[in-house]
Write a protein that binds this DNA or RNA. Structure first.
Lengths: 359, 359
DNA sequence: TTGAAAGCGCTAACAG
DNA sequence: CTGTTAGCGCTTTCAA
C-alpha cells in the first residue's frame, strides 16, 4: 500500500489547573457526591431525574456533573439494573461465506433499524455471524447478557436454529419469511406473492419464456422462485433457474456465462434482487439484447438504486422503512414481556422501463 | 400498510425434566461451582482457560458449563475487568440531517470494519450521531465507559469537535482527511491528489470545461474540489461547481435541473462520489448527451457498483478494505496505550469507459 | 491447586 | 428528602 505517514503529537496525561493544583477527575458517583456534599445514592437519583430528591440539590448536582464532565459508568449501571438498553442486530452470513457485510438491501434495512432503535433510546450491538463456523452463534448472542433483545437481519439458511432458540428466548425478531406455525417473530413481505406478481407482469408484457436469476438457498429467495414457478406452470410458460451469487463482486462473471449460455432460452427475467437485475442489464447490453424489447427484466427490493439504472428498473417493492419500524416495535413489545405476532406485508410492483407496455 | 397477521404460539416458562424435577437454570459462576463442587473463583479461572486450575477439574467444569448451556455474564465480567472488549463505531451525520445511515461508501467501510473488528475478538457498538442535535455526541460516546475505543466513519463537518476530544481521549481513529499538525488519528486517501488526477485525466481526454458535482461541506469533498480547481487554474480550464446532495433520493431532482441549466458549460464531469456519477450518467442520457463522446465523467470511491454502470464508470479508487484494516490496527495500538500516526493513502485512477482515450 | 474475600460503580430497598 | 446498606456477577489478589 503506497502511503505517507504523518506523526501525531504527544499529550500530557494529567491536566493541571493554572494555579498548579491537581485535578483528580471525577469518575464515580461517590466522587461527585463528595463535591456536592451528598452520598452516591442521592447523586444517582438526581442524575436519573428522580422527583425524590430536592429540586435545589438536584440542580446543584446536575450543574456539578456538567462542570466536571461527569458521566455515569454504563457498565456498572447496566449490571445493577439488569437492563442493558442495548439491542443486538445480527447479520447471519449463512450462505455467502468469506464475504463481508455489504448487501445493500441489508444495509438499507440496517440504516432504518438504526434510526428506529436510536430514537427509542437503545444502543445497537452489531454482530456479524457466520453460522457455519460457529453453530452456537445465536446462543452466544442471546445468552451474552449484553442485550435486551435481538434483531436478525435475514434468516439466511438458519431457519431451524432460529426456531430452536425461539423456544426459550423470546425477545427476538427477524426480517424474513413466515412459515405456517412458526415460533419466532418474523417481519417481511410475501415473497411468493412477489414472485407471482413479477411473473405475471412479464407474461402480460408478452414474455413466454422466463428465467429466474439467483441462488435459492435462502428461504426468501426460494419463495420468490416458487411464486414464479407457480405462475409459469399455471400458464405453461417455460422457466429456467439460473443460480448466481448475490453480491456484485461474485455475480458478474457468473451472469455473463450464464446468460450467454442460455441465450434464446428466455425473453423475461426475474432477478432475485435489484443488484442482480442491474448486472443483468449490463450483461444483456453486452450481448446485444435490447431491454425491454428483446428481454424484459424485473428486479426485487426497489432499492434507491433501482431508479437509477439504465433503463430504470421495474421491480418489486419491499417496504424497508416500514418493516424496520415494525421490527423494532415488535421487539420492544417482546422485551416488555408481551407476545408478538409475525407480520407479512404485501409486495408491490413498481413500473419503470425494463418491462413492456401491457398488450 | 397492507398486511396479514399471524399469531405466535405461547410457551412454557419453566422447563421441567421428564421425571418432574425442577431445573433451575445455571446462571452464575456460583451456580455452576455448586454443581462442580468448587467455588466461583475456580470456575472463573477454568472458563478463562487458566493454567492455574487442575486440568481434570477444568475439563469437568468445561463439560458441565457446556451441558448446562452456561454463559458468562459479560456485563459483570466487563465491569470487574475494566475491559469492555467493545469498539464504538460511529457515523456522524453532520451535513445530511434527517437522513439515515445509507451512504454506500460508509456502509462498505462499515462492512470491512466489522470484519476486522470481529476477527480481533471485539464487539461493535454502532452509533448514529447527529451533531446538530447533540453537540456533545462524541463526549457521550467516548465517556460512556461502554467502549475501549472509538472509530469515526467520516469526519463530516465535525473536525473541530473531533480535535477537541482528541486532546483528552486517545483511542480514537477516524476515516477521513489529515490536516497538517492535526491531533486525532485519521486514515484516508489524499483527496486533493484524487481531485487532481481526475481533472488531469479529463483534460487529457480532451475536455476543456470542467464541472464538479457535489456539496463541499465535508472536508474530504472540499479537498477533492480543491484538487480539481488547482488543475483547472493551472491550465486555464473553466470549472463550475454544481453542489448536490450525496444520496440517491435527494440528488436526482437536483442533478436534473443543475445539469440541464448548465448544459453546454461543461464537457467533463468530476463527481464527488460514484453515486453522483451514476445519477449523472442517467441524467446526461436523458439530456441526449453521449458519454464519453460529448461529456466525460469520472466518479470517486470505486465502489463495486462503479463497474456495473452503463457505460462502466471511470473513477478514483480508494482502498476501503485496506483502510479498514489500518484503522482497526491503529485503534488497537492506541487502546494498548501506544501513540499512533495518521495515514494518507494514495488514490488511484481506474480507467473504464466514461472517459475518452488519451489524445 | 483451590478457597475466601474484596470490590468494580452503580441502583434500590429500607430507614430515618 | 437523604443516608445506609446490600448486592448485581464477575475477577483477582492473598492465603492456605
Amino acid at each position: 500500500m503506497s502511503s505517507i505517514m504523518k506523526s501525531g503529537r504527544r499529550l500530557d496525561e494529567d491536566p493541571v489547573t493554572k494555579d498548579g493544583a491537581e485535578i483528580t477527575k471525577v469518575k464515580t458517583l461517590a466522587d461527585l457526591g463528595k463535591i456536592a456534599g451528598v452520598t452516591a445514592g442521592t447523586v444517582s437519583r438526581a442524575l436519573a431525574g428522580s422527583e425524590l430528591v430536592n429540586k435545589r440539590t438536584r440542580e446543584r448536582i446536575l450543574a456539578l456533573a456538567h462542570e466536571h464532565g461527569f458521566q455515569l459508568n454504563q457498565i456498572a449501571s447496566k449490571l445493577r439494573s439488569k437492563r442493558t438498553g442495548m439491542i443486538g442486530v445480527v447479520i447471519p452470513l449463512g450462505h455467502e461465506r468469506n464475504q463481508h457485510i455489504s448487501d445493500p438491501f441489508f444495509m438499507t434495512l440496517l440504516g432504518h433499524l438504526a434510526d428506529e432503535i436510536t430514537e427509542r433510546g437503545y444502543s445497537i450491538v452489531l454482530e456479524r455471524a457466520i453460522p457455519e463456523e460457529k453453530p452456537d452463534w445465536l446462543d452466544r448472542i442471546c445468552g451474552s447478557g449484553m442485550v435486551d433483545g435481538v434483531i436478525l437481519i435475514g434468516q439466511s439458511n438458519q431457519f431451524a436454529t432460529i426456531e430452536r432458540i425461539a423456544e426459550t428466548y423470546r425477545p427476538l425478531v427477524a426480517w424474513g419469511s413466515y412459515q405456517e406455525g412458526q415460533l419466532h417473530c418474523a417481519v417481511g413481505t410475501d415473497n411468493r406473492a412477489g414472485g407471482e406478481i413479477a411473473a405475471r407482469r412479464l407474461l402480460a408484457g408478452g414474455a413466454t419464456r422466463l428465467a429466474f436469476l439467483g441462488e435459492t438457498t435462502g428461504v426468501e429467495i426460494a419463495e420468490r422462485f416458487a411464486g414464479v414457478k407457480d405462475v409459469a406452470d399455471e400458464v405453461g410458460a417455460s422457466l429456467v433457474h439460473l443460480p448466481c451469487h448475490m453480491s456484485f463482486e461474485l455475480m458478474t462473471g457468473e451472469l455473463e456465462s450464464l446468460l450467454a449460455q442460455h441465450d434464446g432460452d428466455f425473453d423475461g427475467i426475474i432477478a432475485a434482487s435489484d443488484l442482480i437485475a442491474m448486472t443483468a442489464l449490463k450483461v444483456l447490453y453486452g450481448l446485444g439484447k435490447r431491454v425491454p424489447e428483446d428481454v424484459q427484466v424485473i428486479g426485487y427490493d426497489d432499492l434507491p438504486l433501482a431508479a437509477q439504472t439504465m433503463p430504470p428498473l421495474t421491480t418489486i417493492h419491499q417496504d424497508i422503512s416500514g418493516g424496520a419500524r415494525e421490527i423494532v416495535q415488535r421487539l420492544q413489545s417482546a422485551i416488555a414481556g408481551r407476545d408478538v405476532a409475525s407480520l407479512v406485508m404485501a409486495p408491490k410492483l413498481i413500473e419503470r422501463e425494463t418491462t413492456r407496455g401491457l398488450a
